[in-house]
Simulated assay, not measured.
Amino acid sequence: MTVGVTLPPPTPTLRVEDLNVSFRSRAGHVDIVRGVSFDIAKGEVFAIIGESGSGKSTAAQAIMGLLPDHARVSGGLLLGGEDIAHISARARRRLLGQRISFISQDALSALNPCTTVGYQIAEVMMVHRGTPRRQAMERAVELLALTGISAPEERVNHYPHQFSGGMRQRALIAMALALEPELLIADEPTTALDATIKAQILELLSSLRARFGMSVLLITHDMGAVARLADRLLVMYAGKAAEVGQATDVFAAPQHPYTRALLRSMPRLDRPGEALVSIPGSPPVPSNPVAGCAFHPRCEQMGEVCMRIAPEEALLRDGHRVACHFASREPTDA
């Protein structure tokens, strides 16, 4: 008789535990990210979505260690089970690029205008791995080709201003892939791109994820990009997690009123001609937080308890978590 053995769950690529970020101001410390927790599995695309000012980009920058000195960060950050929250600045610099790479939303500002694109890609390998310049430049050509840039042997010697917006974004992706990282963080990677180029960039990220087996943290407010690319998602509002779950579950049965409002504000192919509904009001200002549930001034489901008590995250089913006093355990049509 064979006795079954229960294997421990695989270690996630990234585990974020109770992440808090605040910034020092004249009025004291202002909370931007408050108690956010999530895991990203190996090979998974995990999206963080929300309106501008929700704290999603700040959370990504905290993971990368890119926040300014006046920021205060607390919480756990585990990369492959290794604590990266309390390592030295020097150790973090070694980590960046080798195990975690970052794609910013402004490719033109991210690239050095005085240096060729090819050299900037090659420099990553020369600095982190001591790769000889000639070999690194040859690899830069391969990476540009991999990201779909035509005539990479010529383009490798061009400067950023000679690239279109979509090509600059592909060049950033090539740079991020230079050391084949475990985790790729993409912060609004399709901002300011037209619809056709945006679709191409998303398709590129999807194919590269499959090819390299890396995990992807996608920061965006584009629900269409999330529906196309993400396996799981986190909806943030006013610095906190509103809803976390499988992307298919959240899109099919959103449990938080904010998630439902976001979905109603985007067009759907299965409901042609349906009027889009905007979310009334504006998100709260971080320096003047709202008592109770931060979303209650804009919520059509608001009750008296929402004005007094901030809801705790509750596990509904299959890892689907929601922070709402009136979350249902039954599917809800968006």
Rank of each mutant, 00 (worst) to 15 (best):
G76C: 10
V73P: 07
L77Y: 12
G65Q: 12
L96C: 13
R92A: 14
G75F: 00
G81H: 03
G118N: 07
S109G: 11
E153Q: 14
P160V: 04
Y159C: 01
L143R: 09
A174V: 07
L96I: 15
R155M: 12
A176W: 13
A62D: 13
D69L: 14
R93I: 13
A60F: 04
R168A: 02
S104A: 13
Q105G: 09
A89M: 12
L77Q: 05
R155S: 07
L111Q: 06
L172G: 05
A174M: 09
S164W: 07
F102G: 06
L146P: 08
I100T: 00
E154C: 02
G80K: 03
S104K: 03
Q105T: 05
L177M: 15
A174Y: 00
D83I: 04
A62R: 11
L172K: 01
V73H: 06
P113Q: 13
R170I: 02
P68L: 14
S57H: 10
S150F: 07
L79V: 09
M137I: 09
P152V: 10
Q120C: 09
Q135H: 12
Q135A: 15
H128S: 08
V156Y: 01
S88K: 03
H86L: 08
H128Q: 15
L66N: 07
E153I: 03
L144I: 03
L177H: 11
A140Y: 07
H128G: 10
L144T: 01
R170D: 06
L146S: 05
L111Y: 04
A145Q: 10
R170P: 01
M175Y: 04
S164I: 10
P152W: 03
A145V: 00
I100K: 08
R94Q: 14
A89W: 10
A145C: 04
L95Y: 08
Y119W: 14
D69Q: 15
V73C: 05
F163W: 03
E142W: 00
T147A: 13
G65V: 07
E138C: 05
L172H: 00
G80I: 05
P132M: 14
A171H: 06
H70V: 12
L111G: 06
I84S: 02
A151T: 14
P132H: 10
G166W: 04
L78R: 13
I84H: 04
H128V: 06
I149W: 00
I87H: 08
R90C: 06
I149Q: 04
C114W: 05
G80M: 09
Q135P: 00
V156N: 02
I103F: 08
Q105L: 11
G97A: 11
M125K: 14
L146N: 01
V156I: 03
A176V: 12
H70L: 14
A59L: 15
F163S: 02
E142F: 00
S109P: 00
D69E: 15
